[in-house]
């Protein structure tokens, strides 16, 4: 126990002293996840709204598929994309493997089903009276769309935040596609995995605490948006 408490206090010292190494890793994690969540949202939210509003053949199947994909294992995404990105893979020429771009693409694939699916839920959660109210007020189709988006904004934000949380906390993709390269593709999760195996428990613990903090903040936003969406 002493060992753990000692490690914990050194971890806190590292955090409090704004250890450059630690914060550069935190920043790498955050910006990669932010880009991934932005791209996934730009795709997932419109797709979610489209699916929610349109009836088409195979919709039920698609919804079931999306539900399954929400639990997509990160290592499977990593494995498949590794096959694409490796030098002899179909996309090998692009030289994406072991770059932040590879992680971003992997995380996009990982969280797109989440954002897509939750956007469908968000659109369906809109009050059935909303559309009639907009029409009765004489809103044009365009205005109705804007009002609709504004009404489900918190549910959509919750979908985006949930995607971000998944992206920043995953380790499989970042490790397999990023390679944990120092100062380049080293994220909080891969660094934690590495530093422990190096015996740098305090350093890993400091990162772990910061990851927890990020998760805590993300979750706070998530609950806030979910409450407002009701």
């Amino acid at each position: 126990m002493d060992y753990f408490i000692q490690a914990l206090s050194s971890a806190l010292v590292l955090i409090a002293n704004f250890d450059k190494e630690i914060y550069s890793i935190v920043w790498t994690s955050i910006w990669i996840s932010l880009v991934a969540v932005t791209v996934a949202s730009l795709l997932g939210v419109p797709l979610g709204l489209a699916v929610a509003f349109k009836d088409f053949f195979g919709k039920k199947f698609l919804l079931q598929g999306l539900n399954t994909l929400m639990a997509l294992p990160t290592v499977v995404v990593g494995l498949l994309l590794y096959g694409f990105f490796t030098r002899h893979g179909p996309l090998g020429e692009w030289g994406l493997l072991y770059t932040p771009m590879a992680i971003i693409i992997g995380e996009c694939v990982l969280i797109l089903p989440i954002i897509w699916n939750l956007s469908i839920t968000a659109a369906n959660s809109a009050d059935p009276r909303l559309s009639l109210t907009c029409q009765a007020m004489g809103a044009t189709a365009w205005q109705q769309g804007i009002i609709f988006l504004s009404e489900v904004r918190y549910a959509l934000l919750a979908a985006v935040v949930a995607g971000f949380g998944r992206a920043i906390g995953e380790v499989g993709i970042a490790m397999m596609l990023g390679g944990n390269i120092h100062g380049f593709t080293r994220t909080m999760t891969t660094a934690i995995a590495l530093e422990t195996s190096k015996g740098e428990f305090e350093f890993a613990l400091a990162l772990g605490l910061l990851l927890l903090l990020v998760a805590f903040i993300v979750n706070g936003f998530l609950q806030y948006f979910q409450r407002l969406a009701r």
Partner: peptide, 20 residues
């Protein structure tokens, strides 16, 4: 229709208010 709609005020049975 749109133009006629705007000449009318409509209060539904359980009115829906926007999240604002």
């Amino acid at each position: 229709y749109q133009l006629f709609r705007r000449r009318v005020g409509y209060v539904q049975q359980k009115p829906y208010l926007f999240h604002a």
